[in-house]
Design a protein around this nucleic acid. Structure first.
Lengths: 346, 346
DNA sequence: CTGAAAGCGCTAACAT
DNA sequence: ATGTTAGCGCTTTCAG
C-alpha cells in the first residue's frame, strides 16, 4: 500500500552520484566540477556538465551544508520596530546596499522578521542550527537581547548601529553626533539662532547621538540649549508633524530646525506649511538622511547624508572577517557623514 | 601543524550523539524527545531534556534537513519592482500577515530580494536545493519567469496576484475588478459624474483589473469612458501627483477620482490641493487599499479595503496544501474587497 | 518504550 | 587528473 510520506522534498531528484554514473566518472570529480575547483581535465569537465544538464541536476544544499559545515547564506534580522520603519528609504537602501555587497560572495541574503519572543526563539534556533553563516542586525534597541544571544552562541554577528556607547558586539555605525553637529553649525553659519530639533525615539542610541550633536553645536556657539526647543518623535512623518506643531506653539519665532530623520523632516515641513511659514525663507530645515522624502515638496533641503553603500560594504566585510577568524576581538567602524548643501539662501 | 579550516561552523558544537551518551540513552530516543514524538517514558524524557540543557545542545538543521527531507522554511521572494514599492503599507502588512499565519507551523519565513538575473539564479538554486519547502511570490509582473521556473522544478509555489487572466500557477488575489467597480459606483451614487482614474502600471495585471472595474462602472451608468480621463502611474506618490495634475489640466471640471493605490491617492490629494481644489467638497477621491497614507492629511477618504489578514492566511494555507500533495491541480483564491465609507458628504 | 542500524547527498582527504 | 573512502548529524525503520 502507498504509505503517506511526510517528506516535503520531491522524490526522484537526481543526485551527484547519478550524475557521476552518467558521465562515467567518480563522485569526487563531479563535486569538483560543480564547485569550479581547478584540476579537472577540460573534456571531463564538459562531460560532467552535459550529464548535469541532461539530468537537470541541482545540488542538495542540506547535504552540502552538512558535509561542508557552512550554509552559504547570511541573515539580516529586523525587529518589530524596524518593521514599522520599513517604509523609510534608509531601510530599503541599506538592504539594497548589503545585497549588492553580497553578490560577489555567492551567499544568499535572507531577511527575517523577529517581532515576537516566539519568532526570536525560532530565529535563534535557525541561526544556531547552522542555516546561516552569520547575522546582520538592524537598528537594535537598547534592550534588545538578540545580539548577545547570537554572539554568545558563537555566530558571527554584526550590528548596524549600536545599542549604547559601550557596545561590544561588532558594529557599523554612522557618525551621528558629528553629522548633527555639522547640520546645526550650518544653520548657525547661515545666521539662524533660534534653532529647534525634532529628535528620534530617545531609547535608541542613534537618536541620543543626534540630539547630543545638536546640543554640542549650540554650546559651541555659546547658545544654551533648552529642552523646550527639543521635541521627540518616533521617526514617523506623523510624529514629526506633531512635534513641529508643538515646537511652533512653544516658540513661534523658530528660524531653524534640525530633524533627526528624513521622514521626520517631511512631517516638520508639512507642519510648517500648515502654520503659514515659508521654508527656507522663514524657517530652515535640515534633516538627517539624504532622501527624497522630505524633498518631495518644493524646497530643496540641505541634508546629512549617510554613506549607505559604504555601510552595506562595511557590514558585509566585517561579517566575512568574523566568519574567517574565531572571534578574537570586536570590530567597530564609524562612517563619516556628509552635509549635502541645497539651500543656497540659508 | 594546525591546518587552516575553511569551515564556518564553530567546532565543538554538541551533537545529538553526545546528548544521548550523557543521558544514557540511544540516539533515537533523543531524536524523539527533541521532536516531541509520543511514546517516550516521562522520566527518560526529562533525563534527555536535562542533558540537552546542560550541553546547550541545538540540533544541526542541515543534518535534520538531509535526513528528514524538508527545510521547515518558506521563502517570500520580492522582485526589484516590489522592492521599490517596499514603503507601501500594503507590502509591509501583507508580509506581517504571512508571518502571523506561519507562526503555528513552526516554519521560518525568509524574505529574499530577487533583483537581478544573477540573484534570480541564486535564489532558484537555493530553493531547488531544498533550503525551503515552498515559495511565495509577491506581485509578479507579466513577464516574470520566476514562477514558472519554480513551479516546473516541482517546488510548491503560490503567487500573490496573478500575471494575467489565464494564470495557471496557484495564486491568491483580491477582487480588483469588483473593488474598483464598487468604488466608482459609489462616486456615481454620490452624484459625481465627471470621474477620472489614476491607474497603476498597466503591465501589471492588477492595474489592468482596476482600470477595467472603473470602465465597467461607468459603462453601467451609461457613461462612455474615455482615455483622456485615465492617467497612468507607477504606484508611487510622485507619479500619482503628476497624473492628477495632468488630468486636471485636461479636465478642470473633474469631480471624482478613483486612484488605483493608496500611495497614488496620496499624490492625487496633494496635486488637488496644490490646484486649489477642496477634497471631498470639489473632488471626491477613492483609493484602492485601505491605509492611512492617503489619509494623513485631513479628509477621511473612502477606500477599497483588501482583506490582508485573509490574504496572508490563504497564501500560507495554499502553500501547505501544495506541500502535502503532489501538484495535482492549480488552486486559485480570489478574496472579496470591501468599500470603507468615510466621506459622509459624497 | 527503547536501542541499533541504515541511510539522506555531499565534501574533502587520501590514494592512485 | 581522478577514483575511493570516510564521515557530516540527524531521522526513521526495524528489532527487541
Amino acid at each position: 500500500m502507498g504509505e503517506v510520506v511526510m517528506g516535503r522534498q520531491r522524490p526522484g531528484t537526481p543526485t551527484l552520484e547519478e550524475v557521476a554514473a552518467r558521465a562515467g566518472v567518480g563522485r569526487g570529480t563531479v563535486s569538483r566540477v560543480i564547485n569550479n575547483a581547478a584540476g579537472v581535465k577540460d573534456s571531463t569537465r564538459r562531460a560532467v556538465q552535459r550529464a548535469i544538464a541532461e539530468l537537470g541536476y541541482v545540488p542538495n544544499l542540506a547535504a552540502r551544508s552538512l558535509a561542508g559545515r557552512r550554509a552559504d547564506a547570511v541573515a539580516l534580522a529586523m525587529t518589530e520596530q524596524d518593521w514599522r520603519l520599513f517604509g523609510e528609504p534608509f531601510f530599503a537602501e541599506t538592504v539594497r546596499a548589503v545585497s549588492d555587497a553580497l553578490t560577489d560572495t555567492g551567499m544568499q541574503l535572507l531577511l527575517t522578521l523577529v517581532r515576537t519572543a516566539a519568532e526570536r526563539q525560532r530565529f535563534v534556533e535557525y541561526a544556531r542550527g547552522g542555516r546561516v553563516d552569520g547575522a546582520l542586525l538592524m537598528s537594535v534597541r537598547a534592550d534588545d537581547p538578540l545580539p548577545d544571544m547570537l554572539a554568545e552562541a558563537g555566530l558571527p554577528t554584526v550590528l548596524l548601529g549600536r545599542r549604547s556607547g559601550d557596545e561590544c558586539v561588532t558594529y557599523v555605525d554612522a557618525d551621528n553626533v558629528g553629522g548633527a553637529r555639522a547640520a546645526v553649525a550650518h544653520l548657525l553659519d547661515g545666521g539662524r539662532s533660534r534653532i529647534a530639533t525634532i529628535t528620534g525615539p530617545l531609547d535608541m542610541y542613534v537618536a541620543q547621538c543626534r540630539l547630543r550633536g545638536y546640543r554640542e553645536a549650540l554650546d559651541r556657539a555659546g547658545i544654551r540649549s533648552r529642552s523646550s526647543w527639543e521635541a521627540e518623535s518616533d521617526f514617523t512623518e506623523e510624529s514629526g508633524r506633531r512635534a513641529m506643531a508643538e515646537l511652533l506653539e512653544r516658540h513661534p519665532d523658530i528660524d531653524g530646525v534640525f530633524a533627526a530623520s528624513d521622514t521626520t523632516a517631511a512631517g516638520a515641513l508639512a507642519a510648517l506649511r500648515a502654520a503659514g511659514r515659508r521654508v527656507p525663507g522663514d524657517v530652515a530645515v535640515i534633516g538627517f538622511d539624504d532622501f527624497p522624502l522630505a524633498q518631495r515638496t518644493d524646497p530643496r533641503l540641505t541634508t546629512v547624508r549617510q554613506p549607505l553603500e559604504e555601510i552595506g560594504r562595511a557590514l558585509v566585510r566585517l561579517l566575512l572577517e568574523e566568519m574567517e577568524q574565531p572571534a578574537v576581538a570586536w570590530r567597530h567602524v564609524i562612517l563619516r557623514t556628509e552635509l549635502v548643501l541645497r539651500d543656497s539662501a540659508p
